[in-house]
């Protein structure tokens, strides 16, 4: 592989093979000292970026990374946001008004001022786009002071917008990131062929797409063959995720499959220890 991005799931004990195993790991992962050692090793060994998704402890992990200036210089972040499910759960638990008040409470002074001058909480209750941009801003606040390479729209929102043909979401995401952060926008999807055909139909250019590619077709919709066909016709950069199919496929098998595909030279890999990092990066970056 040309490029390996480090995934953050193992640091938070997220395990796609078994939630049960994840809980066991989460107990071990409480202390991020090990995570920092893994991150340092990976970036010295050739990893080129780190994919982070919204997690209650992300701010803590980022804080530890920021305390190491060498890492701050080396690590390029690829955040995935916004975490819509979390907001939906909050609305169910606390109601819309309380949730919006809580969200606003987390916003920067500048954002609060903008919202208040536009009409306060009422505007958020009526205007989806203001709310959407506020979610992006709040979640990116956690990464202030780090290098952000590409910001990816979370698959839940990408796929919902795709399925409901909400073209505006894709326009606004790209514009907002460009105008306010000067960074590139990417998309995460579980429906790669449908996404690229619709982007084509809408004449939208999204050069970075993160999606599942693995030997057994896990989370590749509508089928592995359709995803492979779509990959051949896509002229942007695809970042392969779930290359181990959530821990079901052995590393060598995973690598053999993804390197057999055209137009695929970047993969996100979750790494849980320095030993694991050594064997995985050696294998994926061809150092064996």
């Amino acid at each position: 592989m040309e490029s390996i991005l480090l995934g953050d799931n193992p640091f938070f004990g997220v395990d796609h093979l078994s939630h049960e195993r994840a809980r066991e790991k989460a107990n071990i992962s409480q202390d991020f000292t090990n995570a920092l050692e893994v991150i340092r090793y990976c970036f010295n060994a050739g990893a080129t970026g780190m994919v982070v998704s919204t997690h209650p402890r992300l701010k803590e992990l980022i804080g530890m990374i920021k305390s190491d200036q060498d890492l701050v210089n080396k690590v390029q972040f690829f955040p995935i946001l916004p975490y819509v499910q979390g907001y939906v759960l909050k609305v169910n638990e606390k109601g819309m008004v309380n949730t919006l008040a809580e969200i606003l409470n987390q916003a920067s002074l500048q954002n609060k001022f903008k919202i208040i001058t536009k009409g306060g909480l009422g505007i958020l209750k009526k205007d989806f786009y203001s709310l959407f941009k506020l979610f992006i801003d709040i979640e990116l606040m956690q990464l202030q002071g780090t290098k952000i390479k590409t910001v990816f729209l979370h698959d839940v929102l990408t796929d919902l917008a795709l399925s409901l043909r909400m073209k505006n979401i894709f326009d606004i995401f790209q514009e907002h990131l460009h105008d306010h952060y000067n960074v590139e926008a990417g998309l995460v999807t579980k429906n790669f062929p449908l996404l690229i055909s619709r982007l084509d139909e809408w004449n939208l250019h999204y050069p970075h797409i993160m999606t599942s590619f693995n030997k057994i077709g896990f989370q590749m919709n509508p089928s592995r063959i359709e995803c492979e066909r779509a990959l051949q016709n896509f002229d942007g950069r695809v970042i392969a995720m779930s290359v181990y199919a959530g821990g079901y496929i052995k590393p060598q098998e995973a690598l053999d499959y993804i390197t057999s595909l055209p137009n695929l030279n970047t993969a996100v890999i979750g790494i849980s220890s320095v030993e694991h990092a050594k064997s995985t990066l050696d294998l994926f970056l061809g150092k064996n």
Partner: peptide, 15 residues
């Protein structure tokens, strides 16, 4: 028997 060995693609996956 893991879910991975049983899963098949669907026309669209949302959640």
């Amino acid at each position: 028997i893991y879910k991975q060995s049983l899963s098949t693609g669907v026309p669209v996956d949302l959640g």
